[in-house]
Every structure is written in structure tokens, then in C-alpha cells.
Design a binder for these strands. Structure first.
Lengths: 341, 341
DNA sequence: TTGTACGCGTTATCAA
DNA sequence: TTGATAACGCGTACAA
């Protein structure tokens, strides 16, 4: 690792001149020395020491990606197979913009904030946190922040956020069910917080528009922890007898339910209809194909990273809340009840 | 962000003393000052500046995770849903050991090496690269390196590697098929390099042990690119008529094939048997459940990161090549041909 | 057009 | 037990 100083000595120049050439401040340097320096840079394979640069400029070119692991300690957030598409989108965008990415997956927001401040992280991407955690981070961290899938976060300075039209997406799905004559429609999720709350809204709205009353029994709560999921799915299978369709808040849950139903001799869609959310490989390659709400995970990551980078560059960002579109992907897991008329 | 210097001035101490307290060199400091300093540290919420520390110590506490994106430009490596489990395992281990993780997913090994050297990365994890790329990195980078799923990499200084008993895993699967009376068994993969080459070996060995001759027609090459996969799968469906079973090198491929067969009216396992590799959610929740070879992705990441950290600490590492175990998970996608006797 | 000198925050050496 | 000071590599204001 050769340094600027050594290079300057070898060339009989000052560090300033070498530095100027490196930074393209060519109008202050003679053509001949530029060439000499550039050749040497190449020859000695000069690479700047980022620590020194960051120290001198009080910057870091690091974008932190903070995500909270699920409450289930033994597991980790990366267990969700489609998280990686978001990460991939972020990584690509960040790299192409000349930044670096550091991932934090700690449970402990204080720990996170410490690391962020030690590294002097230029900007933060918050992913999958809840509003309170986000606000807690915001209170201490004053540089640009972009949230992914976090709603209702009011704080100062403001944060930008990228999400999905979750409510509209769920509405489309449930509306599709009611249009096909379904009236007993369950809502399946592990909880009704974050994005699921939005989706729950869309679900209720669609019911309402179809003149269907929502009852508390309509909510099927899945316990996704490894040890309990089988039992939980069994319970849900039993309860699902009361419904003609189940709207699930993820493809994973839709597929898990469908498999369990299959094992209990209940057929999808003949005996019960199932609809998912995400449109990933799970729903696509299941048979019957699972009808689902499409979302572009990678794009979510890209848009979030792009927004953050615009902010870092001091550019304008149009909307503080960017909601990506969804669309319904119709496959074979929903029965048309009107046929039976 | 308060600095040591400011803290020292506030306490009427030297930076040395404060630094000593921070680093627990208490035997050189009086008890009373220790207490004063610790209180101030707490009160002012002191956080060290890593850039300055790294600069002074010529270390970074960063572990680089380098992975090469697939050749398919439009895609990115994170599209493989189960990559994230490996990343998760690494992240957890790295964080708990007090290190940080930086992800590089560039295609360009020179670019990678530049970044690694700018950041002064302490150790490198190579994931999903081919042998040549690994060796190229090794030639320039002399600190500890641990490879994941890279075979036949001889270089100096040596690298450690973590992989799977791929050959044995494939052998188990194909042996299971032959034991059940299958004799026309195809091998499906996108290529025969890296881990797939090992699996191909296991496949051939099992054929051989069962007295079955391998013919080139047995190899079904899948073109997994987005635009061509459907066509490729159709071709393979046609060819698969000649076989009683297909061994696929991933659950994804197994599921894709099964779905395509289903759409063509060919039933699994009644008309043809399918077996996968990975044991992820795809095979688990498909119906029929796909018989597959189990591997623990997260553990792969954990073991690799642990190995690297031992190396960084100067501890002994027993084996230079760690091959994780596999086991066959029997589900419902393979037919017992002996029944028909 | 080029060079000198200092500061960034930390650690480490050595002297007091 | 404590303090002064140099060093790490880079960028930059200012001087020449």
C-alpha cells in the first residue's frame, strides 16, 4: 500500500500536487506533471486509505442498513428468503453510486446507534423496524434517513420512506374474491402491525364495499415460530372450514396453509380458495399456482437507496412517501363461486 | 460526538490517561481518576471514532464478504432466495465477535481488490466465486481468507474453505433412487462447475455402484436466465420422458421442473420421480413434497465466519477444508418402482 | 504551477 | 500515576 507521501517523494513533487491530480483538479497543474503523476499512480497501484480520508473530511461514504431481527431469538431476519432481493437492490445501487454498505442486524437500537456513530455513517436505511424504533433512532441520528416499510413515523428532522401501496394491494385481492362471489373471507397474518395493518385495512375496506360485515372470527392469527407453527396451522385448518377463502399476508403463509390443507384432505381451490401476497417463487411454482399480489422487492431496495443517495447529494426528493405499485397475479388457487349458480 | 481530547480537557487530564481507562489499562491509573473518567465517558456518551483508531492501529475490524453476481447482468446474486441464510449466519457471527461486515458484489475482481485494500479489510470471505477468481484475489491479498463453496483452490498463502459434502449428498440421493429400482436417472443443473461438479461426481458414482452406465444424454442442462427458462424447461420436460427419475442440483430447479411437468399433464411421482437439493421452503411446502438433500445454509455461514475469526485471532484452525454434512429428506416425489414387480 | 504546514481522533512511546 | 508528543494518511488553506 503506497501512500501519497511516498509517491510525492519518488516524483520529487509535493503531496498537494499528487493529491490535486488524484482529485482531478487539473486546471491547477501542468500537463506534464499530470502525466507523470498518473503514470506513477498506475504503476505503483495507488489506493487511497479511506480511514485517513474519512478522518480528514469527516465523511465516511458508508450507508448503514439497519434491520431488526424477528423477536424469535434463535432465528434471524435473513430467514425470510425474499429479504435478500431488497438487500440486493440496495447493494447494487449503493455500489454504483460510489458508496459502501454496512449491515446492522442487532436487536438493540442503542447498540446500533453506537456503531453508526463510531463509523460516522453518512446515511441510514431502516428496514422492517417498527415506528417506535425508527423514531428512537431518529432522535439521536440527525443525518439523512430513509425507511422501508415503516408507516406513521412522524419525527424531526423528517424521514423519507419507501413502501408499498399495501392497502390498495390487499384491496385488489379481496375485491377479486368478493367479485367472484366469496363472502366468507378470512384474513391470515402473524400480527396486525406495520405493513399488515395496512393490508388489514384494505381487506376490511373490500369487505365493506361488498356489503360484508367483518367479525373478529375472521382473523386467523398464525404463530410462525418454528416449534409452534405446525400446531398453529392445524388450528387454522380447522377454523378455515367456516370460510370459502383465506387472504394471507405473504406467499409463504399462503403456501404453508395450502400444504397443510392438502395434507388434511382439503383441496385448493375446490374446497377453499387461498390468496397470497408477494408473488415470489413460492407462489409461482406451487401447484395449484397461488393467486397473489405482486410486489417488486428489488425495486423497493433500489428506490430506497436512490432516495437516500439523492438526499446525501443535497438533491431534491419529490415525495416524502413513495408507495410502489402492486398488481394482482391471477393463478389457480381461487374458485369462481359464481359458476355454481 | 465528543472526542478524547475534549474529554481530557474537561477533566483536566491528558488524552493518554483517558485512553488508558477506555482500554482497561487500569493498573496504570489511580482508582479515583478511573471513576471520574468512567463517569464522564458515560455522561458525554463517548463513542470512539473508528477511522482514527484504524488509522492509528492499521487495522479495520472489517470482514469483507465478496460474492460474484451471476453472469446474468440484469439479475443479481441475491435473487437466490437462500443466499440470505448464509449471509445471516455470517452477519450474526461477525457481529458477535466484535467485527463488522462489508458486502462486495462486484463482478470485477480488480474493483473488489481495490475496495478491500482501501478499507484495509482484516479478512475476506469468498462466496460463490470460481477457483480462478479466488486465486486471483489470493495473489494480491495476503491476509486471512476463507472460501465458501469453492473447490480445488491451491494457492499461497493457503486459504481455508467451508463447503458441503456435495458428492456424498448427491450420492445418497441417487443411491436412494437406484435402491428403489430406478435405472434411467437424469442429472439436471445449469452447468457442471463448482459444487455441481462435485454433485455430478456423486451422481455418477451412485450410477456406477448400481451397475448403470452413464450416457451423455443423461445430462439435462437448464438455462436459468429469465427469458429462456420457460423454453428450456419445456425442452427438458420432453426429454424427461426417457427417464424414470430426475436428480436436480437445487430445490428451485426441482420445483420448477415439477410445476412444468404438472402443467404438461405429467404427474410427479406417478409418471416420473423428482429429487432436489437444499431442503428449503420451496421443496418443503410443495405438494407433493419434494424429496431432497438437506443442507444447513446458515451453518455454512457461521462456520465460515468462525473460521475466519479464529484465523484473525491467530488461533489454530484444525482442518483447512471443512465439509458440512448432508442428509436425505424423504418426502413424496419419488416412486418406489419395486412395488410394480 | 507547486510547496509548506496543519488538522482530523486515536494510539503508543517515553519521559516526568 | 500521569503527561507531552509523535505518528497514522489524507486534504486543504495559504504561501511562494
Amino acid at each position: 500500500m503506497i501512500t501519497i507521501k511516498e509517491l510525492a517523494r519518488k516524483l520529487n513533487l509535493s503531496t498537494t500536487t499528487v493529491s490535486n491530480v488524484i482529485h482531478g483538479k487539473t486546471h491547477e497543474v501542468s500537463v506534464s506533471t499530470i502525466e507523470r503523476v498518473e503514470k506513477a499512480l498506475e504503476e505503483y497501484d495507488y489506493v487511497p486509505n479511506i480511514n485517513a480520508r474519512n478522518l480528514a473530511q469527516n465523511k465516511s461514504k458508508i450507508i448503514g442498513l439497519a434491520m431488526k431481527p424477528r423477536a424469535d431469538k434463535s432465528s434471524n431476519i435473513f430467514k425470510d428468503p425474499f429479504i435478500s432481493e431488497v438487500i440486493g437492490g440496495i447493494e447494487k445501487t449503493v455500489r454504483e453510486a460510489g458508496y459502501f454498505m454496512m449491515i446492522y442486524a442487532s436487536d438493540d437500537m442503542n447498540e446500533l446507534l453506537k456503531q453508526v456513530s463510531t463509523w460516522n455513517v453518512d446515511g441510514l436505511l431502516l428496514f422492517g423496524l417498527l415506528g417506535e424504533d425508527g423514531a428512537a433512532v431518529r432522535r439521536k441520528y440527525k443525518k439523512p434517513v430513509v425507511c422501508i416499510d415503516i408507516y406513521n413515523m412522524v419525527c424531526d428532522p423528517p424521514v423519507y420512506s419507501v413502501g408499498l401501496e399495501d392497502e390498495a394491494g390487499a384491496y385488489k385481492a379481496v375485491r377479486y374474491l368478493t367479485d367472484l362471489g366469496h363472502r366468507k373471507i378470512a384474513f391470515l397474518s402473524d400480527d396486525i402491525i406495520g405493513v399488515d395493518r395496512e393490508r388489514f385495512r384494505g381487506y376490511k375496506k373490500a369487505l365493506n364495499d361488498a356489503g360484508i360485515e367483518y367479525k373478529d372470527d375472521n382473523y386467523l392469527k398464525l404463530n410462525p415460530w418454528e416449534e409452534e407453527i405446525e400446531q398453529s396451522l392445524s388450528d387454522i385448518c380447522r377454523k378455515s372450514q367456516n370460510f370459502s377463502a383465506v387472504f394471507c399476508t405473504s406467499d409463504l403463509y399462503a403456501v404453508q396453509l395450502t400444504a397443510k390443507l392438502f395434507d388434511s384432505g382439503i383441496r385448493v381451490p375446490e374446497d377453499i380458495s387461498v390468496i397470497g401476497f408477494d408473488d415470489n417463487a413460492l407462489s409461482k411454482y406451487h401447484r395449484p399456482g397461488i393467486t397473489t399480489v405482486h410486489q417488486d422487492m428489488e425495486k423497493k431496495g433500489i428506490v430506497a437507496a436512490e432516495t437516500l443517495i439523492r438526499l446525501l447529494k443535497g438533491l431534491e426528493v419529490e415525495k416524502s412517501m413513495n408507495q410502489l405499485a402492486t398488481n394482482l397475479v391471477i393463478r389457480d388457487s381461487v374458485k369462481d363461486l359464481r359458476e355454481t349458480e
